[in-house]
């Protein structure tokens, strides 16, 4: 089941990339499609942050993951690179859990 999902997603993501290289630009450059493609990732990523950080099964919770997110946000605000952001967030949660 998991591998089916992985393979399906891989095929679909590749097809999306390929479409822009072969489908006439006029088809994909319609304003609605263009705005949808630029707006959707923002909403989905914001939702993923909420679910990952505050989701606890079917309820919301504030725990060490929230502190990790704040630490990550500070790193981003300081314009630190992606890897640093992830490592600092992980270290923050690890430190809180070790207490």
């Amino acid at each position: 089941m998991i591998w089916t999902a992985v393979l399906l997603t891989a095929a679909g993501c590749y097809a999306l990339k390929l479409s822009g290289w072969f489908v006439p630009a006029s088809l994909l450059e319609r304003p609605r499609i263009r705005v949808a493609a630029s707006v959707l990732p923002v909403a989905l990523l914001a939702a993923l942050v909420v679910v990952q950080v505050f989701g606890a099964g079917r309820s919301l919770a504030v725990d060490s993951r929230s502190a990790a997110l704040v630490a990550g946000a500070v790193c981003l605000w300081l314009r630190l690179p992606f890897l640093v952001v992830v490592l600092v967030a992980a270290a923050t949660a690890a430190a809180l859990r070790a207490l």
Binding site: L45, L48, Q52, R65, A68, C75, V86, V88, A90
Partner: peptide, 8 residues
């Protein structure tokens, strides 16, 4: 816990 920061 770092996954949320990665998405952010």
């Amino acid at each position: 816990a770092a996954v949320g920061a990665a998405f952010l």
